[in-house]
Design a protein around this nucleic acid. Structure first.
Lengths: 195, 195
DNA sequence: GTCTATAGCAAGATAGAC
DNA sequence: GTCTATCTTGCTATAGAC
């Protein structure tokens, strides 16, 4: 199909999403104006509305894209023989995946309040599915006598909170490499639950 | 000293702080207007400026009050014979203290981005001092051979993130009591670091 | 596809009456 | 001490020229 002169939709769209993600992570959804996103991209504010129906959709699409990726990647993890190995693998995956996209992670749990009720429900359902993957590992391990766990749901949430925290302090080029950090977290997670 | 008729400064001041805390926790600092805080209290927006120089001070004072209380309470913890007992006591204190004031906790780590640089630095320093208390326990335990810890700083941040997470899911009257929850978290923290 | 211009509204903060 | 009224600024979103 012919395209008008000056068309950049295949470049501008991604640039808008990238700029919005950077700014939302830095200053928060409510504190970032459409004008500022537009300025960052190098277009006028009005032009943004060619790519997104409104500011809310910008946030919602960003979150569902992130959680969709996370669920897909977690589902694609190679099988492991026992719950201990599965937990180790899951923890390392979680840390590595999160360290590679700290902005998306940050937004996904800091901006839940700024979703409309319908969008919030959809996002929560995706998050719940992810947590369920970890909880299944823990419950299996408990059933096999490999883990000693007081409450599987509480333990799931505690481990996820612990691991998510990594994005708030990890800085590239610091004292520890990503894989060292992942190994430390996986070790703590395993020791916290092993029988 | 004589006071003019209609003076309510000793009531209105605390009411404003309470309303601001509730609203900031619910919808986020940037999304809450001074008008809405005033409406919640039952005064007009202009009257708020008799009690706070601006919106920023409302947030900053709230955070420093919270962290000051936390530091004071942690410093007043009774001594314990060894690092294992100290960690157990610290973890239970942390969970109990946080569950009693979930709004203040939530704000203290969700709204850091909305502080001016000077205020941010002051708040970060208080937070650092608190983390240092936990790190000292971990380092002592490591030195005495009671804990096996890869990196004391990373472990400190991991345990704090794990425990802070409790405020995001705990609801009064749920399956577990506060002290059961505190016991579970303390157990996980200890097992994650014990030799 | 992007621009300028603007409608329509809400924000933070202040002035002055009572 | 609180009110009403208002200044100034900035916001989301849309209309219409190019």
């Amino acid at each position: 199909m012919a395209r008008k002169t000056g068309s950049h939709s295949e470049i501008t769209g991604p640039k808008i999403r990238a700029a919005a993600q950077r700014l939302f992570a830095q200053d928060g959804f409510a504190a970032v104006s459409m004008r500022r996103i537009a300025a960052e991209v190098g277009v006028q504010a009005g032009a943004l509305y060619l790519y997104t129906p409104d500011k809310q959709a910008l946030l919602f699409d960003m979150m569902t894209a992130h959680l969709g990726e996370l669920l897909e990647a977690a589902a694609a993890l190679p099988a492991a023989p026992d719950p201990v190995a599965r937990l180790d693998r899951f923890a390392r995956f979680h840390i590595a995946h999160h360290l590679e996209r700290p902005e998306a992670v940050f937004i996904a749990y800091m901006e839940l309040r700024n979703l409309t009720p319908e969008n919030f429900a959809a996002v929560e359902e995706m998050r719940r599915r992810y947590e369920q993957m970890l909880q299944a590992i823990l419950s299996d391990g408990k059933a096999q006598g490999l883990f000693r766990i007081g409450d599987a749901k509480l333990t799931t949430l505690a481990l996820i909170a612990m691991m998510n925290g990594v994005t708030t302090w990890y800085r590239e080029g610091g004292r520890l490499s990503r894989s060292e950090v992942a190994a430390h977290y996986a070790d703590m997670a395993l020791r916290a639950v092993r029988a």
